[in-house]
């Protein structure tokens, strides 16, 4: 640590003439970001206040419309699709966080001493790298009326010949499968993050608690959970942002319709449908609503990362 502060001082003393290189080196990032993200974002928000769409072969607008797009969206489908997105996220996230906490606690419990941890971690993280659209297509074929899953169910006598379980005809089946896919894709990632946090907890705290006669359950709720709170918040918020972006899985699974009864239509699917029907005013308004929600969540993430940085500095 001492050498670090010494190094920092030295760096400060000799770096005045080098300052301009800092700007040179970060320039490509910021130019690219401004060009491909910031300007498009500004024009997206701008168009949300205009009536601007294609009617047949003719473009209508852009004519200024004030908040008409927002009024339309909030009085029609947007609240429902926001609700869908939240429900679909929760169906995956609740088991994800519970299982991940359980696994991370088990993996880091030195008395439990689980073997084969490298193998388990490798396997449970794997689905995170899978192409979501292809994974969804795979689930569609596997859970189809004549697919292998129904084949197994018939084989073991759970269903009758000619009466398969029609997963994609029921709201519960469709939402459940989307939740299952999201769970499978993310619980390994969350487990590994939580494990790292739990391993960062001072071992002497656990030992002291054990000597005082705490049960593993007490240790988990009274010591582990409060101490990994910053990471839990980070996981919760980043997962929520991920949930708001949910698109590939329900889009492919329901062929973009969100059926049955548009119960699986998410916000980004809604945005996508406006993009393809070329209603740019409404697409802009959906984007702006999402931007405002994500903006608030991003500030929370930044603060969780920033306190981490400040604490590191203090040390």
């Amino acid at each position: 640590m001492h050498s670090m502060t010494a190094m920092r001082k030295k760096k400060k003393g000799s770096s005045i003439s080098y300052a301009k290189y800092g700007y040179y080196f970060i320039a490509p990032f910021f130019i690219t970001f401004i060009l491909f993200q910031l300007i498009p974002l500004a024009s997206t928000v701008y168009y949300s206040f205009f009536s601007y769409f294609r009617d047949g072969r003719k473009w209508i607008g852009p004519t200024f419309a004030g908040l008409a797009n927002y009024q339309y969206l909030f009085s029609t489908d947007l609240p429902r699709y926001l609700g869908n997105t939240l429900i679909l996220w929760l169906i995956g996230f609740i088991p994800q966080i519970l299982i991940s906490l359980l696994l991370a606690a088990w993996f880091t419990d030195y008395r439990l001493h689980l073997r084969g941890q490298a193998f388990f971690k490798t396997v449970i993280y794997m689905p995170n790298l899978i192409m979501a659209s292809a994974f969804s297509m795979l689930f569609y074929t596997l859970f189809a009326d004549s697919g292998p899953v129904n084949g197994v169910l018939r084989l073991v006598g759970l269903t009758q010949e000619g009466a398969p379980i029609r997963f994609f005809a029921s709201i519960l089946g469709t939402r459940g499968l989307i939740g299952l896919m999201n769970f499978l894709m993310w619980f390994g990632n969350t487990t590994i993050l939580l494990m790292a946090a739990m391993m960062g907890v001072e071992a002497s705290l656990f030992e002291a608690a054990e000597i005082d006669g705490c049960t593993p359950t007490q240790i988990f709720f009274k010591i582990t959970l409060p101490l990994i709170r910053p990471l839990l918040i980070y996981v919760l918020i980043t997962s929520m942002i991920g949930g708001l972006q949910m698109f590939d899985v329900p889009q492919i699974l329901t062929r973009g319709s969100g059926d049955p009864m548009r119960s699986a239509m998410t916000m980004i699917m809604y945005l996508n449908s406006h993009m393809f029907s070329r209603n740019y005013g409404r697409a802009g308004a959906v984007s702006t609503v999402l931007f405002l929600i994500c903006g608030i969540l991003c500030v929370v993430v930044m603060r969780s990362l920033d306190t981490d940085r400040k604490e590191a500095k203090k040390k």
Binding site: Y18, K20, Y21, P40, A283, S287
Partner: peptide
Amino acid sequence: YDFKLKNLAFTFIILIMSMPTQISALG
């Protein structure tokens, strides 16, 4: 490097880190 906007640049990148790219898709 030490430069005036260093901390601002860092904080800004952290702020946009979790921002979905889909929201600016139209533009």
